[in-house]
Design a protein around this nucleic acid. Structure first.
Lengths: 143, 143
DNA sequence: GTTCATGCAAAGCGTTTGCACGCAT
DNA sequence: ATGCGTGCAAACGCTTTGCATGAAC
C-alpha cells in the first residue's frame, strides 16, 4: 500500500472530514490495482471485501479523493478512469485503433509544463494528460 | 464555411457513403460555431434550421465524421465536445477550478510528437490533447 | 450528542439501438 | 431499384440524488 507513507487519518480529519472503513478500502484497493481503473472495476474489487458497500458510495468516495487530489480522474478512450496520484507523474498514450494504453513518465512533459507556466501562467496537472493517436503495432499492421 | 476547401461530396461518396442534407448541415454548423461544442449545443443550432432533425441523427452524424477524421471528439472537463479538424492543430488548457478553456496552437507539442514517434512509434493526434491544471487567474486569486 | 457518511432506491442524463420509412445513389 | 440514412421511441449504462439509518467524531 504505497499510499501509507502519507498520514491519511490526519490528512482527512484536518479538513473536518471523517475516515471510514469504506474510504480506506477504496484507497487501498486503488493502490492494489496495477494502474487506472473504472468505477465499476473498483466497485467489483471493493465489494468482494465489503459486500454491503454500495456503488453510490464508490462514486462519492472517488469524488471525495479527487477533490483532496489523492486520486486523478481522467477520460481514456471514452471511459472514465481513476488512478492514485503517485510520486511519479505519468501520462497516457491511447491508441485510437486498438485502444491500447501505454504509460510514460512525465519527464518529457516537464519542458512543456515549464513553458506553459512561464508563458501562460498555467499550472499543468501532468497526471491528467492523455494523448490519443495510433500505436506502433497498429501503424505496422496498417502498412 | 472553411471546410468547403475540401471536396466533401467526393470524399464521402468515394467510400460508399451518402451525402445528405443532415450531414451537410451538421458540418456547416460545426464550422460556423467558433470552436468546440457539445452534442446538445450542436443539436440546438442544427434543429433551428431543420426542426425535424433528430438528436439520434446528430450523434450518428458526429460519429460518422469522427470516423472520417473530419471532426475530433474530446473530453473537456467531463463534457464530450466536438470540433472541426482544421488546418491548424491546437490543444486545450482546461482550468480545474473555473473550467475555463484556452486554446493553444500545437507548435509547442511538435517536439513531443516527434519524440513519441521516434522513440515509441506512437503517432499522436495533436488535435486531441487536453491538459488540465489551474489557469493564471485562479492561481492569482488563490494567493 | 452532533454531524457527516452510508445504504438504498429512484431518478437523471447523455448516448445508443431496433425498426420502419424515406431518400440518395 | 437498392440499400444506406433518418426519425421515432424505447432502452441503455453510468452517475447522481433524496432520504432515513448508522457510524465517526
Amino acid at each position: 500500500m504505497s499510499h501509507h507513507h502519507l498520514d491519511l487519518p490526519q490528512l482527512i480529519r484536518a479538513q473536518g472530514y471523517r475516515l471510514t472503513p469504506q474510504r480506506q478500502l477504496v484507497l487501498d484497493t486503488l493502490c492494489a490495482m496495477s494502474s487506472h481503473a473504472t468505477a465499476s472495476e473498483i466497485y467489483e474489487q471493493v465489494s468482494a471485501q465489503m459486500p454491503a458497500l454500495n456503488q453510490a458510495t464508490v462514486y462519492r468516495t472517488l469524488e471525495f479523493f479527487v477533490e483532496l487530489r489523492l486520486i486523478a480522474k481522467s477520460d481514456i478512450g471514452g471511459q472514465t478512469v481513476y488512478e492514485l496520484v503517485g510520486e511519479q507523474p505519468h501520462y497516457h498514450l491511447v491508441c485510437r485503433q486498438c485502444s491500447h494504453v501505454a504509460e510514460l513518465a512525465a519527464t518529457q512533459l516537464a519542458d512543456l509544463a515549464d513553458w506553459l507556466l512561464v508563458e501562460h501562467g498555467f499550472q499543468a496537472d501532468l497526471d491528467h494528460v492523455v494523448i490519443q493517436g495510433v500505436c506502433a503495432d497498429c501503424r505496422a499492421s496498417s502498412l
